[in-house]
């Protein structure tokens, strides 16, 4: 059961990563682009089980 919850969390992180990338592609302001990338890094590090 714990594994199921953990998998849901990884899915959640994956979903948020997709949203961040989607918004990164959509945005036209350079500052927002930089910020999306900075925010994305921790989500990807967790998604790929690196940190």
């Amino acid at each position: 059961m714990e594994l199921v919850v953990t998998i849901i969390y990884y899915c959640l992180v994956g979903f948020v990563s997709v949203l961040l990338i989607y918004n990164l592609i959509k945005t036209t302001e350079w500052q927002k682009e930089v910020l999306y990338i900075i925010v994305l890094i921790p989500f990807l590090l967790r998604l790929f089980m690196l940190k």
């Binding site: 990164l24 592609i25 350079w30 682009e33 990338i37 900075i38 994305l40 590090l45 690196l50 940190k51």
Partner: peptide, 26 residues
């Protein structure tokens, strides 16, 4: 120009991700 800029930022982010990720993995 905007998409090149975006690509540049993304590559920089990717480098940061890969370098730090490798360090964490090691």
């Amino acid at each position: 120009k905007a998409s090149i800029r975006k690509l540049g930022f993304s590559i920089a982010g990717l480098v940061l991700l890969v370098v730090s990720g490798l360090s964490f993995y090691e």
